[in-house]
Design a protein around this nucleic acid. Structure first.
Lengths: 142, 142
DNA sequence: TTCGGTGCAAAATCTTTGCATCAAG
DNA sequence: CTTGATGCAAAGATTTTGCACCGAA
């Protein structure tokens, strides 16, 4: 199924390119809506999924609330998810794979291990600054 | 908020205890329903979440389809998620933490890193056996 | 008797899909 | 013209919640 040009898809991709955070479909929608007031959320989802399937963008699902995040940066890198505000942030961490991890995981395991997912959790700088010296019962468990 | 005994919750916990896979709420529901035909899915969710919050069971969200999995085994261990059938399987892998990973992730990062999540993906033994020598376009991307 | 638990149904979230129409090639 | 893309609304799938009633302590 070849991909035909569309101004909506171009706008979606361009918006994604302009941000270094990892927008949700809803956020993409509300921003692209400024240029295309009649665009529908369905179109946004269709295009994001299509671009992801084509390997042009990346779709990440961190277990948080079952919400997908989309990333223009498809080069391998690690992510940080804030336990408080759920922001997704790139880590500057050098991206060496940990190949020994998969080798070790294979020991004594019947199936075929093809890859692994690793991401980090904690409190982002914004949230740290916002409430110093408060209690934070609302934090998620690690 | 103290926890009062209920036969439904006991049955849910007992079912979870009987399995070494990681049932979804729906699966817990359909099984406990045999003993309590009138139990509702809402009750199952309320109890699973309550037990998880109390630290009696674990709730895992692997990015797959936004479905939660519940685990009677709360001791730290690693998981494998099948890209084809989405089964969640415990790995026999020795559970040494990789503490150097978090130290390295902190370098050059403003926020506070409190933990990380790591799990493995691939094809489980069942799926490997079921279709040898076929194409597998339906496999998810790593 | 009191207060947490249950069943039921409705709602909240996030995402996908059917269909008539539109527009790129 | 042909086929993919859009907008809209409806439906899916998963999880949560309001409420009246039930049952453990």
């Amino acid at each position: 199924m070849t991909m035909k040009y569309s101004r909506q898809r171009a706008a979606i991709l361009s918006f994604l390119q302009s941000r270094k955070d990892h927008p949700t479909a809803e956020l993409v929608y509300s921003n692209v809506k400024e240029e295309f007031p009649k665009i529908s959320l369905g179109t946004v989802y269709r295009n994001l999924n299509q671009l992801a399937k084509a390997g042009i963008i990346a779709k990440h699902s961190f277990g948080v609330l079952g919400i997908d995040h989309f990333d223009y940066n498809i080069s391998p890198h690690f992510h940080f998810v804030c336990n408080r505000c759920h922001a997704v942030i790139d880590l500057p961490m050098a991206c060496h794979d940990f190949p020994e991890i998969e080798a070790e995981a294979s020991k004594g395991f019947d199936g075929l291990i093809q890859g692994h997912r690793l991401y980090f959790c904690g409190i982002c700088k914004n949230c740290l600054d916002q409430n110093r010296g408060h209690d934070h019962e609302q934090d998620q468990k690690p």
